[in-house]
Write a protein that binds this DNA or RNA. Structure first.
Lengths: 337, 337
DNA sequence: TTGAAAGCGGTACCAC
DNA sequence: GTGGTACCGCTTTCAA
């Protein structure tokens, strides 16, 4: 009796390739990895390649790295908040550079996990390096990752974390720049916008603190201005600014600055005569506003440099953690201040 | 002779935990996975947990999924171009929802890889599902992924791909909306901005085509207007718009609209009297412009719905590919058109 | 030049 | 209740 079976296309393994090519699994591995320590005859190579192509063979990364005892995966938590063009470009450059060094960048969708929970989840993937923006990771998280074989842990954030390399992106500097600029321009009653949107505190608190530092010991006063990203909230805040008799506002970034500037103008305040406004991030939109928006230009590290730091750290896991201050901030004065 | 050795902290395995707890690896597995088919005494459970905690044990995801023959990983290519707030929110919601269904979302940094190359790289990770925005993936790529065990492949883009589920996000509709609106408003010489920035063609071409469709068979003429995202380019384009005697522009999206609107105003054109301008994406900034920017509001599918589609597909891999048209587009008329 | 086999870390079946 | 053990797919000695 002839039995016709529907062939369920099981994912082909190297054993299948070996069978089809009439060789051993070892040979398949040698051929497909171009192992230089071993010479395989040209006919055999061809047969193996042919078989692999025919079956649509794709090696199993997990099996490979399990056997190898390590991977080339660089893990980053996927950003939860919409990320600006600045940071996007930085990320892209970083991925490019790491890819060039033969690493694979993977952004892990860390959903509800926080702190050490998250670190544990990341550690399960046994990445060779972990890059963590923000201040999500503590020393214990770093320890977990290192114990699980991460040869480099790099934080990109406001503070250094024990045991990890650090790219110090101190947003204080942004606030200091803005504060110093406004003070030098003769402003003395300075408001600082602090977004109400969650997830931005890591940046907004230091920026506020920076302004405070900049005018510390002078006769200038700093007022914290919480603001949700809506027109209505902006209108209310504009009215409040007038009541408070402020003469300057550092608006967190250019987007919030645009929002607030519009509201201030609608409130009848002249910019910059009655009220100086300065943003941050040097986005294109600031140049398009009227008056043109002054801003704090932020210089992020080159993705290329970070990639090389990662590579160094991976090659020499015992080395002292490197700490680099990498956030350049400088005022671009336009017309609004 | 007493030998003092520096204990190199090798990553602890379940065998280490077993040793320390004085039980077998099997027992460790049972305890840590809460295997219900097997009863383990309370004291033993405690000892195992204790040992795991003490060693900082973290299970090895690769080993686990190798044994299991599958993972819960949903893979997406990491977006290469800076992605707007709309899409960011969608992504975030999607990750949330998938996480809730116990999937792990991983964005793979696909650098220089294209088409089938990329599909192969993704397939190496043996994800249970693959979500691909844009038009990067062809039928062959889909086949590669499926052969490697992906139980669901979903494309989010302008066209359906053979073998994959599709969330049709037909940006033609955006252009059609804009075109119909401008035509209804009496405009007949319509320019359509097409960004020169690479990576945006997947959206800009259909949007342009949509405008053409909308006015097809009428007396309106459509002019393609390539534009780089710089002030200078915008100024030149504004001058050209005047020469061409256009009476309306669909500016690709709100950001390009803002750029061009500024340039048109600087060129002395009145909006909307001399020139109607409409953007797309319904960003906040459009509301803040003067005149307020008309725009095409885009409704993306809910991340929740997509997550459920993925889950359905994973549970029933043999099912017919689902195809949903999911992009809602509607004009929000403000003052600029 | 090629093949047999051990072993990476976990899980789950089958005995005891 | 708990332990022994085979096995997932791949790489890499070691022998032939």
């Amino acid at each position: 009796m002839r039995s016709v079976m529907v062939q369920i296309p099981n994912t082909p393994t190297s054993a299948d390739v070996a069978r089809l090519a009439g060789v051993s699994r070892a040979t398949v591995s040698y051929v497909l990895n171009n192992t230089s320590a071993v010479r395989i005859s040209e006919p055999t190579r061809r047969r193996v390649h042919e078989a692999a192509r025919e079956l649509g063979y794709v090696p199993h990364a997990a099996a490979r790295s399990l056997r190898a005892g390590h991977s080339r995966m660089v893990l980053m938590p996927a950003p939860a908040v919409p990320v600006g063009p600045l940071y996007s470009r930085f990320l892209d450059e970083l991925q490019q550079a790491l890819g060039h060094l033969d690493y694979t960048v993977v952004q892990y969708g860390t959903v509800g996990l926080h702190g050490d929970e998250a670190a544990r989840a990341w550690a399960e993937l046994r990445p060779v390096a972990v890059l963590v923006p923000g201040a999500e990771l503590g020393p214990r998280g770093v320890a977990v990752l290192k114990r699980s074989g991460a040869r480099a842990v790099v934080t990109l954030g406001p503070v250094r974390v024990d045991g990890a390399h650090a790219l110090l992106m101190d947003h204080d500097a942004v606030g200091r720049c803005a504060g110093a600029h406004l003070h030098a321009a003769g402003r003395r009653r300075i408001g600082v916008v602090v977004p109400k949107e969650p997830g931005l505190e890591a940046y907004s608190r230091p920026r506020l603190a920076g302004v405070r530092e900049a005018v510390h010991g002078t006769d200038a006063a700093v007022t914290e201005l919480p603001l949700a990203y809506t027109e209505q909230a902006a209108a209310q805040l504009a009215a409040r600014c007038r009541e408070l008799n402020l003469d300057a506002v550092f608006a967190y970034n250019d987007e919030y600055a645009m929002l607030l500037m519009r509201a201030l103008q609608d409130e009848g305040l002249r910019i910059p005569e009655d009220m100086a406004v300065i943003g941050a991030d040097d986005l294109m939109l600031g140049r398009l506003l009227r008056p043109r928006l002054s801003t704090v230009h932020i210089e992020l590290p080159s993705g290329h440099d970070l990639a090389e730091l990662v590579d160094r750290a991976v090659r020499d896991p015992g080395g002292e953690p490197e700490v680099h201050a990498v956030l350049g901030a400088s005022v671009i004065r336009r017309e609004s201040s």
